[in-house]
Every structure is written in structure tokens, then in C-alpha cells.
């Protein structure tokens, strides 16, 4: 078996063509799984005896919520590695992930409120999970705006890393405090599902959709990463031209 020199791909210029080759390998399966997952979710899975068909939005909502949280942690890890080992590619990865993570978090809020209307009779409930997801979205917005307002890419990477690490330490505290706040004000709490006894097709649809979301995230992050690499190389080339 040929040994692959992984360090080679740690440099953005070498990673660029590699990413290009990898993108279809994630994008196409993602599309297929989305179609399969939605089909199973909408046509195979049975109606819920309490919520009828309205519950079916969870096939998007739940994977989106999971992705929102996971991607935040992943973003912080990449940012931290980029900072600690001065690995540019890793920092760029964090910036690329941030947008996708924010998108999923936003999607889970929107689908949550779409679900809330028929289920709870209102678009928005100050439920513990919705509230902490909202704050997670704010954390993403903070990371993205901080990076956007710093011109020097090196400073942007490292400042983002500090913020992401602080954020990741804070996320459990925020979740706990919001949970605690919610039990304190019992009035607003509504249980999301009764005990989640899921029929097998439901579970299957959920897992397929989750896999699709993962593959989609990888593909989109790779695309975004390529744009970030091009942008920075061009800036560097322009700067070099000026100095000659």
C-alpha cells in the first residue's frame, strides 16, 4: 500500500486541488441521502398518533439542531488547532465551518417554530431548547462578525480561536442555566415529545437525514474552504506585487 504523505495536504496550496477532487464524493451521496431520507420520512414513516403529520418536520429539525451544536464544537477544535500549531488550513476550516453551523442553527430555529405553530399553537415558545439554540446562533454570529471585521487574516484566525474556545467553555454553562431558568418558570414549558418511542422507519429516516446533513456539511465546507484559500492567495499576490 502506498504511504500517503498527509503533511502535504496540510498546506493550503496542496489542499486546494485535493479538495476539488473530494467535493463530488460528498456532494452526490448527500443529495441521494437527502432524497431517500425525505422519502422515508414523508411516505414510509407512519403518522404520529398525537401530532398527525405535523411531526414530520423533525426529520429536518432534529438533524439540523444536532449539526448546529456539533459544528460549533468542531469549529472551536479546528480554530484551537490552527492557533496552537500555527496551522493556517485548520484556521481556514474553522471559518468555513462557522457559516454552515450558523445556517443549520438558523434552520433548526425556523423548523422548530414551524413545528410549534400546529403543535403548540404559537410560533415561538421560550422553551429551554429553543432558547439555548437561539443563544448558540448569537455565538455563531459573534464569531462570524469578529472575523469579518479584522483585516489581517492571521489576527482574524487567532482572535476567532480565542472567542471560539471561550464560547465552547460557555456553551454547557449557558445550556445548564437556560435549563435551570426554564424549570424555574414552569409556565412556559411544554414537553416536546412524549417518551420518544420511535417507529423503526422514523428512526431510519432520522439517521439517513443526519448522514445526509454530515455529507452536505463536508461538501459545503470544502467548497467554502477553496474560496477562502483563493481569496487569501490573491490578497497575498496583490500585496507582493505592491511591494515589488
Amino acid at each position: 500500500m502506498a504511504r500517503i504523505n498527509w503533511y502535504k495536504y496540510a498546506s493550503p496550496t496542496n489542499f486546494y486541488p485535493f479538495a476539488e477532487k473530494m467535493i463530488p464524493w460528498f456532494a452526490f451521496p448527500a443529495a441521494v441521502l437527502f432524497i431517500v431520507g425525505l422519502y422515508v420520512g414523508f411516505f414510509v414513516a407512519p403518522s404520529d398518533f398525537q401530532q398527525g403529520d405535523a411531526y414530520r418536520i423533525i426529520f429536518i429539525h432534529v438533524p439540523a439542531a444536532w449539526m448546529g451544536m456539533l459544528l460549533y464544537v468542531l469549529m472551536a477544535i479546528y480554530a484551537a488547532i490552527g492557533w496552537a500549531f500555527n496551522a493556517r488550513l485548520s484556521s481556514m476550516m474553522a471559518s468555513a465551518i462557522s457559516i454552515t453551523g450558523a445556517m443549520f442553527t438558523f434552520l433548526s430555529l425556523v423548523t422548530g417554530s414551524l413545528w410549534g405553530k400546529p403543535t403548540w399553537g404559537t410560533w415561538w415558545v421560550w422553551d429551554a431548547r429553543l432558547t439555548s439554540t437561539l443563544i448558540l446562533l448569537f455565538l455563531y454570529i459573534g464569531f462570524i462578525s469578529l472575523q469579518a471585521s479584522i483585516d489581517d487574516p492571521r489576527r482574524a484566525d487567532r482572535a476567532g480561536a480565542v472567542l471560539a474556545i471561550v464560547g465552547v467553555i460557555n456553551v454547557p454553562i449557558i445550556y445548564f442555566s437556560v435549563q435551570w431558568w426554564n424549570t424555574l418558570h414552569q409556565g412556559a414549558t411544554i414537553r416536546l415529545l412524549g417518551k420518544p418511542t420511535m417507529a423503526p422507519p422514523m428512526l431510519a429516516a432520522m439517521l439517513i437525514m443526519l448522514a445526509a446533513c454530515w455529507l452536505y456539511s463536508i461538501a459545503v465546507v470544502l467548497v467554502r474552504l477553496r474560496y477562502i484559500i483563493i481569496e487569501r492567495e490573491q490578497n497575498a499576490a496583490r500585496a507582493a506585487e505592491v511591494s515589488v
Partner: peptide, 22 residues
């Protein structure tokens, strides 16, 4: 983190207020 950035005053509120929640 926001030292010397344009719009530092507003930016700081976006960064810090969510962390103030607990």
C-alpha cells in the same frame, strides 16, 4: 479582542452579550 477594530463598540456587544446570559 476588538481593540482597534472598526465598529469596536458595537462588535463588543455582539461578542459579549450572549456570554452574559448565565
Amino acid at each position: 479582542l476588538t481593540l482597534g477594530l472598526r465598529g469596536g463598540g458595537l462588535l463588543i456587544s455582539i461578542l459579549v452579550l450572549p456570554l452574559y446570559v448565565p
